[in-house]
Amino acid sequence: MTFQNEFTTHDTEILPTSPLVEFWNDTLAPKFLKYRHVLEGGLSRHSETVMPMLDISRGNHVLDVGCGFGDTAIAMANRVGPDGQVVGVDCCDDFLDIARNRPERRFAPNVRFETGDAERGLGVAQYDFVFSRFGTMFFANPVAGLRSMRNALKPGGHMAHIVWRERVDNPWLIEARDIVRRYLPAPGADARTCGPGPFSMADEDTTRAQMVAAGFTNIAFQRIDAKVQVGRDIDDAVNFQLAVGPAGETYREAGDEGVARRAEIVIALSELFEDVQAREGGLWMDSSSWLITARAPR
Rank of each mutant, 00 (worst) to 15 (best):
Q4L: 14
N5S: 14
F7M: 07
T9E: 15
T9P: 13
H10N: 14
P16E: 08
V21E: 10
E22P: 08
W24T: 02
N25P: 01
D26A: 11
A29G: 08
A29P: 03
K31V: 06
H37L: 11
V38I: 12
S44C: 12
H46V: 10
T49C: 10
L54V: 01
I56A: 04
S57C: 12
G59T: 01
G59E: 03
N60Q: 13
V65C: 12
G68M: 08
G68I: 03
F69S: 03
A73V: 08
A73R: 03
A75C: 09
M76A: 10
A77K: 02
N78W: 07
R79V: 06
R79W: 00
R79N: 01
V80F: 08
V86H: 05
C91P: 02
C91D: 01
F95A: 04
F95W: 01
I98L: 13
R100N: 09
P103D: 08
R105S: 09
F107C: 07
A108H: 10
P109L: 15
V111T: 06
R112T: 03
R112S: 04
T115Y: 11
G116R: 00
D117T: 04
A118K: 00
E119K: 06
R120I: 00
G123T: 06
V124G: 10
Y127N: 10
S132K: 03
R133V: 03
M137S: 02
N141H: 11
N141D: 15
G145P: 02
A152Q: 01
P155F: 12
H158R: 14
I162L: 15
D169Q: 15
P171A: 14
W172V: 06
I174D: 09
A176K: 05
D178M: 13
V180I: 11
Y183W: 02
P187M: 04
G188E: 10
G188H: 07
A189I: 12
A189K: 13
D190C: 08
R192W: 07
T193V: 12
G195Q: 06
P196T: 08
P198W: 07
D203T: 04
E204G: 05
D205W: 11
T207A: 14
Q210A: 10
Q210P: 01
V212F: 04
A213C: 13
A226N: 07
A226F: 05
V228F: 09
V228A: 08
G231R: 04
R232Y: 09
I234M: 11
V238H: 03
V238G: 02
V238W: 02
A243Y: 03
A243S: 15
V244C: 15
P246M: 13
P246G: 14
P246K: 12
A247Y: 04
Y251P: 00
E253M: 08
D256M: 11
E257N: 13
G258T: 00
V259A: 15
A260W: 06
R262P: 05
R262M: 13
I267L: 12
E271N: 11
E271I: 10
L272K: 11
F273V: 02
F273Q: 03
E274S: 14
D275P: 00
V276Q: 03
A278T: 02
R279E: 14
G281P: 08
G281I: 09
G281E: 05
L283W: 04
W284Q: 06
M285K: 08
D286G: 12
D286M: 12
S288P: 06
W290V: 03
I292K: 05
I292F: 05
T293N: 02
R298P: 09
R298A: 13
